[in-house]
Each structure stands twice: as structure tokens, then as C-alpha cells.
Design a protein around this nucleic acid. Structure first.
Lengths: 247, 247
DNA sequence: CTCGTCTTATTTATCTTATAAATAGTCCGC
DNA sequence: GCGGACTATTTATAAGATAAATAAGACGAG
């Protein structure tokens, strides 16, 4: 149950909390998306008083949302100067919210390519580390992810979520917090890019290739694990390159 | 240090703003560090009212600091349940503040090794991409970084800052925002780990090795750039491995 | 005119006091 | 026992006042 229909035509209060579990998160979502979409590129960011008026919320809510956006690198506030939007290079791209806003803004094939360029660096290495150093729990997680993909093949699980689970299990099996940190990034990016990958039918995340990664890790063969994962992502890259040529 | 034994010459107001440019940032710093240091591992996180009382600041300041810590993944707040510390896996390790708190907490050789394990994935690839795709501006930046290292060798610049500038220039030359994003992470981690690397005398960041990276990028030789950068970081890894054996 | 200082206006920062909303825990009637 | 109303606690929201910081303009001395 989402929200009961009040039946009125008012619809104020942050558009009936369209963004999150409370006003602050709703405002965070609205303003964050607006910033990333470039609404303030050629206009000054409003003062906190204006923001509160525009969105019909109290200054407390406004200030707390602004503080969160500041923590994510999107804004900076100074007395008398007002609140200003930071240049994109300052945005924390590895913050799930920020990344999601960027991916949702219009879906850029370019950004998707750049993201997969990152995956090429991270995931094969994570697979190699996992092959070398993961414990039983880590291996079990990867196997579970693979089994979900098998189930998805038979229609018993969501293909995308299963695919994501597999990749995340490997990141976590690396037992390196820096690699595990990419959990949310990979999750967010893969979820959002579904619109793209789904455009290519039959692209059901090659089970054999994933199996190759799994068996290499189980066999503690770091080099094979790295190579198998690399091949997997480079297939995606090839797909993107094709799309770029087509466009 | 408890709060009881103040009583002397005033010194309230968040201990004379010991943390940042205002009360909110001072509180952010204090509480962030406390969380990462584990002060609340075996104790419940205080309610916002208690926090305000303990640190002698208003609820506004308290709430705004808590919201920033929430945005960084350290806290989560729910009505009636209170504010609770998130498990470390939820912390945004790529947030400069969070990373700094983690590195400062006691200096873990283990964390340093894990960080360099990440560098092995990122930086050689960034160098390769830079060799393949960087523009004139990117190359100039790398050359400037190298020149700073040369100057540092002669005592005309800070060796650590010059070294950092070189590595960051490469990340930025990759023209991939995801790689450029590691700018702050690398900066923070290298700065903080100075205490470690300095313990080894003569470790003045081999100029020839850095030069090899530069020339490879200038020559647009991606593979050579990757290899040169990899060699560079693996030297650091060897250093860490030695230290781990010694301990 | 030029430079430094002083004043002023604007904006964030802080504090205070209420009230609302959410919900974990308790108690009650059956 | 068990479901549901009740209560107490904690965050969420609002509103208003004051403080602090500082950019911009006014002013005055040289």
C-alpha cells in the first residue's frame, strides 16, 4: 500500500512525497536529479529560502537535503555567496544516488562504455583475487549466483538480477573492501543499463562464459579466472562498439 | 577523554570548532571518526537529542551532521528506532572523508595493501587508456607532474605532492570520469600513507620508473604504459609485503 | 585616481520551541 | 495465547528569531 488517495487536487507537499520515504529524501531526489540533468548550468542555484518556497517545504527539510547533496559532492554552500553547484568532476560518481541520476538522465551510450571500461579494470582482477584468496563462503556465494543464472535460463528467476548477483558475489569474494565497494556501483549501473542490453534480443548473458569464470575460481586458477571474466566484459564492450557504429 | 573534566577555561562549542569551518562540519568530523574507530560497536548510537547534549550544539546542527553521515553510508535513521551505525560494507569507502577516517584510525598495513591491490587494477589501465586516447592537455598535465618530481629530487618541491600530482594527472588524462574519480581516493590514501612509505629511507619514488610511464604515454604505446605503471606499483606492493613479513 | 577601510545587505549558520508522524513495545479483552 | 488498541519514544517537519560570515558598494585619505 503506497498512499491512500486523498481525492483532493492539491498534491503539494513535495508532490505527495514522490521521491522517497520522507520529505527530505524526496527533495534530495528532485534536486539531485535536477542538478545532474543540468537545470542549473545556466541559472544560479536558488537560496535555501527560495528552495523551501519552490518546493513548499520547511527550511529544516531544505537544509538537510542540501547537506546530503553537499556530502555527495554536488553542492557547496557559503554564507552570503549562496549555495552553488559543484563541477561534475567533484561529484561522487561512486555514490549510488549520483550514479543513478547520471545514468537516468538520458542514457548515454558514452557513459555506458566508460563504465564498462572501468569494469574491465576491476572485475577480472577481482576474479583473479577471488581465485587466489577467497574463502569457502565466497565461493559458495559465486556458486549461488551462477545457480540463479541457470534458474533464470529456465524462467525461474530474473535474468538481470541473477547476472548482477553473480558479478557482485565475485567482487565480495575478493575479500578486499575496495573491490567489494563496487557492489553498489555495478548493481546500479547494470540495473539501469537494462534498457540498452535488452534492446539486443538473445543477449541472455552467456551461461558458458560465466561458468568458465566459476570453474576457474573453484580451481584456484587466478589467470584463467581473470581471462574468463575479461572475455565476458569485452563481449559487452563489443556490443557497445557495434551500437556506437550504428548510431 | 570524557566530557566531565572540562571545567577549565571554557572551550565548549564543539571544542572551539576543532573539526572544520563550522559546527556542523566539526561534528561531522568528530562523529565520523568515532564511528569508524568503532566507538559505537558495542554501544548504541545516541539519539539526536543525546548527541546534541553531548556535543553542546543545537538539534539543527546535529541533524545536519547526521544527514551528511547518512549520505556517506555510515548511519541510517528511523523514527522510534533511533539512529544506527551501518555495517562497514555499507560505508562509502570512496568518499574522501570516510577513507581518511579509516586510514587515520590506526594505520593498518592490511588496508594499505588492499588499497594498492586496487591501484594495480586501476592505474595501469588508466595509463593505457591515456596512452591511447588522451589529448594534448592530458599529456601536458602528466609532463607537469613529472617535472614536479624532478624538481622535488633537487629539493625544490615536495616529493610526496609531486608524486601524487603525477599519478592524478594520469587518471585525469584517461578522459574517463570513472577513472578520474579515483583522484580524491588516491590523493587521500597516498597522503595518509606517507608515514609508512617514509619509514623506508631512500624510497624517493624512482624517477626512471615514472619517466618510463611518461615516455610510453607520449609515444602512444598503451602496452608499455600499462607495464611501466604496473611495475611501479608492484614495487610498492613488494615493499608492503616485506613490511608484513617483518611484523 | 588608487588604495584601504568602513558600512551595509544578503545568505548561510545556529538556536529554540512546537507539533506531527512513525513505530517498537505493552497491555487489555477475549 | 492472540489480535488489536494504546502508549511512549524517536525522528520528521515547521516556523521564527538571532548570529556569523562575507561580497559589494560607499567613503575617505593620500
Amino acid at each position: 500500500m503506497t498512499k491512500e488517495d486523498r481525492g483532493n487536487s492539491g498534491m503539494t507537499k513535495m508532490e505527495a512525497m514522490g521521491g522517497g520515504r520522507n520529505l527530505t529524501y524526496a527533495l534530495l531526489e528532485s534536486v539531485g536529479k535536477a542538478i545532474v540533468t543540468g537545470r542549473y548550468d545556466n541559472a544560479p542555484f536558488p537560496t535555501e529560502a527560495d528552495l523551501a518556497t519552490q518546493f513548499q517545504v520547511s527550511r529544516s527539510v531544505t537544509r538537510e537535503a542540501v547537506k546530503m547533496l553537499t556530502a555527495k559532492g554536488l553542492l557547496v554552500a557559503r554564507p552570503r555567496k549562496g549555495t552553488t553547484v559543484q563541477p561534475p568532476r567533484a561529484w561522487n560518481l561512486f555514490d549510488p544516488d549520483v550514479l543513478r541520476w547520471m545514468l537516468e538522465r538520458k542514457f548515454s551510450l558514452d557513459l555506458l562504455r566508460q563504465f564498462n571500461e572501468l569494469r574491465i579494470a576491476i572485475e577480472p582482477m577481482a576474479a583473479a583475487i577471488a581465485a587466489r584468496a577467497s574463502n569457502a563462503e565466497g565461493i559458495t556465494g559465486i556458486e549461488a549466483g551462477y545457480q540463479r543464472m541457470v534458474a533464470a535460463e529456465a524462467g525461474d528467476d530474473d535474468p538481470l538480477e541473477a547476472d548482477i548477483a553473480f558479478h557482485i558475489a565475485i567482487l565480495e569474494a575478493s575479500a578486499n573492501p575496495f573491490y567489494a565497494q563496487f557492489r553498489d556501483v555495478v548493481m546500479t549501473a547494470l540495473r539501469t543499463s537494462i534498457r540498452f542490453t535488452n534492446r539486443f534480443k538473445g543477449r541472455t548473458a552467456s551461461l558458458p562464459q560465466h561458468r568458465a569464470v566459476l570453474t576457474a575460481i573453484e580451481a584456484r586458477d587466478a589467470e584463467a579466472a581473470r581471462a574468463a571474466m575479461l572475455a565476458l566484459i569485452e563481449d559487452v564492450m563489443a556490443l557497445i562498439a557495434d551500437a556506437e557504429r550504428a548510431a
